[in-house]
Simulated scan of single mutants.
Amino acid sequence: MRRPRLLYIPFWATLVFLYAPIVVLVAMSFNSGESAYTFEGFSLKWYGVLAGNERVLDGLVNTLIVAAGSTVLATVLGTLLAVGLARHTRSRTLDAVALMPAVLPDLVLAIGLLMFYGLVQFTLGVTSVILSHAVFSMAFVAAVVRTRLTGADPSLEEASRDLGAGPVTTFVRVTLPQLAPGIVAGALLAFTLSLDEFVIAFFTIGNLEQTLPIVIYSMIRFGVEPQINALGTLLLLVSFTAVIIGQRMTRIGEARAQD
């Protein structure tokens, strides 16, 4: 039965609503004019201006440090959390508690982390943001790895233990290879989330340093500069690349699970 063409109107309207601003942003990043809203000709000059902006470069360095550090912590802790919840502890309450940072409003989590750092007298800076983003991202990694665990074959782990391998050996040589696609996908997701996270970083970084989203916020408070479009385009490229790689790794894991 052929579907009415009118049903496609909401679908295409939604796509236009979602992606039209992104297309405009990318197109205006190649604008030769001084205005961020009027296209006057093709040029790459704003990418050059962006490369010479020391404040943006410092924010980028801090963001990459935070993203890399929090991704490592979130991936390790999230993987162990997922394995523990799936293999050793069956509790819906613990499942809900473990995934709570992913569903809590960012503002609530940021205020809670700020109060905690003040209570333990922890100095705010890049390190505090790394720990905060790890707490936030760990739940997402655990959810992705937990999904991958549902397709893993537990009989392989049982066979490994029956053959005399200890828990650590079984985990490293049997469980981890099965979870590798999910772990990589979770790590890429954690990196992407940390890369453009603003609220938690704003509350927990202190006054001496800034991440790139905070730099962008301070630059657009009184109007959008043309170089912001170039910066947004580069961030979109990084995010899309990470998402595509993560989806690819997930599909590889699903294909291996079916073989």
Rank of each mutant, 00 (worst) to 15 (best):
Gly48Thr: 14
Tyr217Trp: 15
Thr192Asn: 15
Phe202Ala: 07
Ser128Glu: 11
Gly166Ala: 02
Leu149Val: 01
Phe171Glu: 00
Phe30Gln: 00
Pro21Leu: 11
Ser35Asn: 06
Glu254Leu: 08
Thr150Asp: 07
Tyr217His: 12
Leu64Pro: 09
Ala102Gly: 05
Ser218Trp: 12
Lys45Asn: 11
Ala152Trp: 05
Thr204Lys: 04
Val120Gln: 07
Ile65Arg: 15
Leu73Lys: 06
Leu73Tyr: 08
Ala96Trp: 10
Gln227Phe: 14
Arg87Asn: 06
Asp106His: 11
Ile130Ala: 02
Leu64Ser: 14
Met100Thr: 06
Phe39Ser: 00
Phe198Val: 08
Thr89Asn: 01
Ile228Ser: 01
Thr63Leu: 09
Asn229Val: 05
Glu209Gln: 06
Arg251Thr: 09
Tyr217Pro: 08
Ala257Cys: 12
Leu237Gln: 13
Tyr19Thr: 02
Val135Asn: 04
Val135Asp: 02
Leu236Pro: 13
Ala190Cys: 13
Ala230Val: 02
Ser137Ala: 15
Gly206Val: 03
Asp58Gln: 14
Ser29Leu: 02
Phe17Gln: 07
Tyr117Leu: 01
Thr75Gly: 01
Val144Asp: 08
Val145Cys: 05
Ser132Ala: 15
Thr75Ile: 04
Gly69Asn: 12
Glu54His: 11
Ala143Pro: 00
Leu99Ser: 10
Tyr19Leu: 10
Val144Pro: 04
Val215Phe: 06
Ala74His: 00
Phe198Pro: 04
Asp58His: 14
Thr79Trp: 02
Ile130Gly: 05
Ala110Leu: 09
Leu15Arg: 10
Ile214Ala: 08
Leu193Phe: 06
Leu131Ile: 13
Gly253Gln: 05
Leu156Ile: 02
Leu114Asn: 03
Thr93Trp: 15
Gly84Phe: 03
Gly223His: 06
Asp196His: 10
Ser32Met: 14
Pro181Phe: 03
Leu149Ala: 01
Thr38Arg: 13
